[in-house]
Amino acid sequence: MTSKKIILSGSFGVGKTSLFNQFIYNRFSDKYLTTIGVKVNKKNILVDDTEIPLLLWDIAGEVAQDKVPTSYFLGASGVIYVFDLTRPMTYQNIQTDINYLKDLLPGGIIKIVGNKVDLVSDEQLENIRTSLPITIDIVTSAKTGQNVEELFLDLGKELIR
């Protein structure tokens, strides 16, 4: 199978680079080093005996998706849209952002990810879920590794569907 380009997007500080590092290197750091521009890396995943090479583009966070250079998204098979469960600011415009991404990548896969789940209680999580105008696909913690592998495997399944 040929490589698939996947974009990690979302506001700054939500944990895109941390998810990327957890997935690729199984490591996490508490330090916050904001991404400048783009970092590309690669990992193969195995879904139902099919090996899929994923080329992950970890891009610098922007408060609104329309601030990200559109050229980064070109030719992408999917976008992982990450927000921070502890910062309402990072999901208050989620509907606008998702609509924008859908327009940009018709037919592309968009995964909506609530990250830093290790920092919120079940009750808080429930409140966020009910308050959001869209459904969260998966909640993750780049810190504990919770659901990180699952996120990419789910994505892989949709890619070969």
Partner: peptide, 10 residues
């Protein structure tokens, strides 16, 4: 392929 991606990003 990582080099190719980075080049394109730059």
């Amino acid at each position: 392929d990582v080099v190719a991606g980075m080049l394109t990003a730059i």
